[in-house]
């Protein structure tokens, strides 16, 4: 734990600005260290992409955030938009789920990858070389040629590589990867994950990896944060969380993916549907689906607490899992 904290989120609340505001994120805390990967995992609607947007400072106009978002000792929540914008792309960059949608369909790849270099003052030959270098670095074959292609002319894997090149173009310290492999073929997924790991090793970039897919996450995450209905259910080192979950939701999640859990060989889906932050159940949001739910779970909202060193759980009965 000697690595520097690149991102530290504390008690982040994101709510809609309505007459009846909804807390989409309700007191989320997490850390991402330089050179390491923190995975944020949760079902659709759990608010995990909103967290990514909040860190980028790109929340929709209709939402507002309170709490702390600290980049490398610097609180960035609430600073003027102009200063925030200067950090975007250069300090923190983002990779999106669908590379085809994330690329402007009417601009050549090179122009999009080179946009930040251009804004940095590069022109002409130097700019062109910079773009080719970036594309080559993310493993795009024949980069000179590909720079002149339009997004629709490339394969899904190459497009995602271009998106990664674009994200790396500003030399960021923190990379937010929002489901970067979900839209890709399984064979391509692995290669993109390897590429991210390689970039991280070379540059010491911190990665916040947002995913719903525990299988993908188990390959790359150093730390794991499990989000349920806009709250942290559990967090800790990935290996230890997956091998010994301290929250019934994490346990159920792990069991739903055969290859992750040692406990079961078959897929065991979680009963019920994911709670939405807009209609969050009372007490522990997971209680309607929890096999261990008791009376207190309905009444009292469990606060995340350190159950054993490095392991945080928001279950009233987290200690009981230790004995399993």
């Amino acid at each position: 734990m000697t690595d520097k904290l690149a991102l530290s989120v504390r008690d982040l609340v994101v709510s809609t600005d309505a007459d009846a505001p909804v807390r989409i994120l309700d007191g989320v805390s997490l850390d991402v260290r330089s050179g390491r990967t923190t995975a944020l995992i949760g079902e659709s609607g759990s608010g995990k992409s909103i967290l990514g947007s909040a860190v980028m400072g790109l929340l929709p106009d209709t939402m507002s955030a309170q709490g702390e978002i600290v980049f490398d000792d610097r609180q960035v929540l609430g600073i003027p938009e102009r200063q925030r914008r200067a950090l975007r792309g250069r300090w923190v960059a983002m990779i999106f789920q669908d590379p085809l949608a994330a690329l402007n369909p009417s601009q050549r790849i090179g122009r999009q990858v080179g946009e930040l270099l251009r804004r940095g003052g590069l022109r002409g030959k130097a700019l062109e070389e910079g773009v080719v270098r970036l594309l080559a670095r993310v493993g795009v074959p024949r980069p000179e040629e590909r720079a002149h292609a339009f997004p629709h002319q490339l394969s899904g894997g190459l497009r995602q590589r271009a998106v990664i090149a674009m994200a790396l173009s500003g030399g960021p310290r923190l990379l937010i990867a929002d489901e970067p492999t979900t839209a890709l073929d399984v064979t391509v997924q692995k290669r993109i994950l390897d590429l991210l790991a390689e970039m991280q090793r070379d540059d010491g970039i911190a990665i916040l990896f947002i995913s719903h897919d525990l299988r993908v996450v188990s390959h790359i995450a150093d730390d794991l944060v499990v989000l349920y209905a806009g709250r942290v259910a559990e967090s800790g080192p990935a290996r230890s969380v997956l091998s010994k979950p301290l929250h019934p939701y994490t346990r159920a999640l792990a069991r739903s993916v055969p290859s992750v859990s040692a406990a079961s060989a078959v897929s065991d889906p979680i009963p019920g549907t994911a709670a939405s932050p807009a209609a969050r159940p009372s007490g522990c949001a997971f209680h309607p689906r929890c096999p261990l739910a008791r009376e207190i779970c309905r009444r009292e909202t469990p606060q995340p607490r350190e159950v054993v060193p490095g392991r945080v759980s928001a279950c009233h009965f987290a200690e009981e899992f230790l004995d399993d």
Binding site: M56, L58, R85, A86, L87, R88, G89, R90, A93, M94, F96, Q97, D98, A101, A102, L103, N104, P105, Q112, E115, L116, R119, V163, M166, A167, S169, G170
Partner: peptide
């Protein structure tokens, strides 16, 4: 609202 505009803003464009 298109993702590529989000991408652009993520690159620091206003």
């Amino acid at each position: 609202r298109e993702p590529y505009v989000q991408t652009a803003r993520a690159k620091g464009l206003s």
